[in-house]
Design a protein around this nucleic acid. Structure first.
Lengths: 320, 320
DNA sequence: CTTTATGCAAAAAGTTTGCAATAAA
DNA sequence: TTTATTGCAAACTTTTTGCATAAAG
């Protein structure tokens, strides 16, 4: 299970060595293995200490040099967390993220926020500046330190899994907003066929939601620590709400009345917008399970969209 | 002119020395003066070199120690810009800002973005984390380096002035949106008294806008480099637009019709919202000319609000 | 048997500390 | 006259480099 990740990164490393005429050695292997098997933000000294435990004969210079290579081939990434040490974090198949650093207990939390990225992009555009990488770090005091509680230091789960969990949560939030809309639209609609269609759609979305919930539950069971793990992917529900037409206008003008055709069209528009939004969203991320979840959601929405198109054609020909 | 800033910071420094039982010296004075008179992000070595030019007898250790003191009393602030050197920037009466760093020419631009801050706050809230300071840095390639032009290195104006310029621009953007609204509302309104009131309001806002424009022009004349200086305060016009009620609903329902009373109420609501928004906005910033501009705008909006309240009472009693 | 890798020691680079001489208060 | 300050040299920390030896291909 855990060895799979190691194998993949080892392959990547070997490929890098081969392409640069470098040689495989016992030391490089050991350093790679130590780095890959230790989540967190380790300094050279940290890694050196871990390596030394397994093989006394390794020198710190080799650790420096090997970490440079691991950085060059995209397995590791140098970061500075304000304590004057260069630290290394995992980079392979990890989304670009930022850091929240407690200056009391030195705990470091990671987060992703496409919303933050969006604002940054708009700023950078004004300068006609081409960003290559960025550093966002928030220093302060964490909840546990303020409560003067020793931090509950359970084994923190793999970032990839946390991201997958949050992607599922986000997809579910989208589905639930859709379901809400369809249910409300059904109740409010005065055209019986329109009402029926909205109810059908709500049912379909609900069954999809149940599927995702099951997947989330499975993930939680596989990785018990996931339930405690803090949010990694931040999203604002109101950004999802924007994808769904408001029912207020309909209410103000005294009740919605969409016939079968308009109902299907409305639904198609929702699915289309959601697909577009999540596709653009997914593309911001490196290859991860979370990204796959978003892409699967896009596919689902597109299939739904296509199915409705067929249904609409049936409705139209029946009406004609 | 420039000496005023130096004097203020010297007072602050002396006060700090006094309170900590420390002594004034020729060296400390010289280092303070050198730091204050040099905008930019200078390293210890940079400042040491500048100080040496004026007094050969100063040692680099004293520069290290004095910069520590200047940091402790809020005149300087340590920053790391990714080149391994500790640099110092001006902190006294400078708003909290972030950095865009060109990795080719090493030019550093500063910016402020309350929008970015807002997203950060919402993230931090989820962690129940108390932020103390943050670091946002965007590394990449600037426009000039991509165009392979040697950077036009004019004298960069004081950050405080650039911030003031941008605050004026933002206030003007708000005023212009208000004017647009009042003008459109006047044209669309079918009630003659309502129309008249909107036109009056538009006129008042326009004369205020002309005042701010004159102020902006004056600022530009005093500080010639200001015209070239890049944007420092980023704001999204759509955030201002949100403060003004949409006219679309009115259009859809076939023409707006606000009587005198509703017209005044609408205007009062706009002024109130604008005052609230800019007050909250201003409070995010340290003591600066820009902040004062925002606060003056708040006062203007409040006065306007109060004047309308009086007018509304007049209208009501006239109508009664 | 050629070429790269390793580990040691030494150097570099940035910053801090100990200390005797010096200058404020 | 007391107390903090200064500047030098030395120490310290993190990272890099030179080089002879060892290991990989």
């Amino acid at each position: 299970m855990a060895g799979k990740k190691l194998d993949e990164e080892r392959q990547l490393f070997y490929e890098y060595l081969r392409q640069n005429g470098l040689k495989k050695t016992r030391q490089k292997d050991l350093i790679l293995e130590t780095f890959v098997n230790n989540e967190g933000h380790l300094s050279v000294e940290d890694i050196y200490a871990l390596v030394k435990k397994r093989d006394k004969r390794v020198g710190i210079v080799t650790v420096f040099r090997t970490l440079k290579s691991l950085t060059a081939c995209g397995i590791a990434k140098e970061i500075a967390l304000g304590d004057g040490l260069t630290r290394f974090e995992h980079c392979y198949h990890h989304p670009v993220h930022h850091h929240i650093i407690c200056t009391t207990c030195h705990q470091v939390s990671e987060f992703v926020s496409p919303e933050l990225e969006r604002v940054q992009e708009s700023i950078v555009t004004q300068y006609d500046f081409k960003p290559i990488h960025q550093r966002i770090q928030i220093y302060g005091m964490c909840h546990d330190c303020r409560a003067e509680q020793p931090r509950a230091d359970g084994p923190s789960p793999d970032t990839g899994k946390v991201f997958a969990r949050d992607a599922l949560r986000m997809a579910l939030a989208m589905l639930n907003q859709g379901i809400d809309f369809y249910r409300t639209a059904a109740v409010r609609n005065q055209d019986p066929t329109g009402r029926e269609i909205f109810e059908l759609l709500a049912g379909e979305e609900e069954s999809h939601a149940r599927l995702l919930e099951k997947e989330l539950e499975l993930l939680h069971q596989k990785e018990r620590a996931l339930r405690e793990a803090p949010v990694f992917l931040h999203f604002e529900p109101r950004d999802l709400q924007r994808l769904i037409p408001s029912l207020h206008a309909g209410v103000a003008s005294g009740g919605l009345c969409l016939d079968a055709r308009s109902a299907v069209e409305t639904a198609m528009q929702i699915e289309e917008r959601a697909a577009g939004f999540f596709l653009e969203y997914a593309e911001r991320f490196a290859e991860t399970e979370g990204k796959q979840i978003f892409l699967r959601f896009v596919e689902h929405a597109r299939n739904h969209h296509a199915a409705m198109l067929r249904r609409a054609q049936a409705v139209i020909s029946a009406g004609a």
